[in-house]
């Protein structure tokens, strides 16, 4: 489960969705993995304004990852442009790519801050199916 997807996932229980405490889900006993991938500037620029930034910072803090900037970087922060040269990805973009698209949860749990239900992650695939008594 890449950390980017965690920015879109909340508790599957309908009554939890209205509570702010249900987002983000909190990692528990998580084993992390890094899968390298190509840096995609167009995607980073596109997705930045849609992220819930302070919630993303919460998760990286809970996982003990290097701190992210306090405020959302802008599209311009993603590139460094030197006079007469092509645009290249900035360090901020590289760091963000590392956190959002290369770091993922391999094994562990994701806990709802509202109801306390824990969703399991096995082999990098999260299971959000609800047991019979919670539907």
């Amino acid at each position: 489960m890449k950390l980017l997807t965690l920015n879109f996932l909340t508790c599957a229980i309908k009554s939890c969705k209205s509570s702010p405490a249900s987002f983000p889900l909190h990692p528990r006993d998580a084993t992390l993995e890094i899968i390298e991938s190509d840096l995609n500037l167009a995607f980073l620029r596109n997705i930045l304004p849609r992220l819930m930034w302070s919630e993303l910072c919460t998760i990286t803090r809970e996982l003990g990852l290097p701190a992210l900037p306090e405020t959302v970087p802008t599209g311009e922060d993603m590139v460094e442009k030197k006079e007469g040269e092509e645009e290249v990805a900035s360090q901020t973009a590289k760091d963000l790519h590392r956190v959002l698209l290369e770091t993922g949860i391999r094994e562990g749990g994701l806990v709802c801050g509202n109801c306390g239900h824990e969703y399991k992650v096995l082999e990098g695939v999260g299971n959000f199916l609800l047991p019979g008594h919670l539907v």
Binding site: M1, K2, L4, T5, F8, L9, T10, C11, A12, I13, K14, K17, S18, F23, S37, D38, N40, I47, R50, M52, L101, G104, Y119, G124, V125, G126, N127, F128, L129, L130, V135
Partner: peptide
């Protein structure tokens, strides 16, 4: 590199966040 991974869920009880009332966050 284009695959963000997948998860197990049911659309009717989806864990994906929807529009959050009173927030400036729209769709994604």
């Amino acid at each position: 590199s284009h695959y963000l991974g997948a998860f197990i869920s049911d659309l009717t009880n989806t864990p994906l966040r929807g529009l959050i009332l009173g927030s400036e966050h729209g769709g994604y």
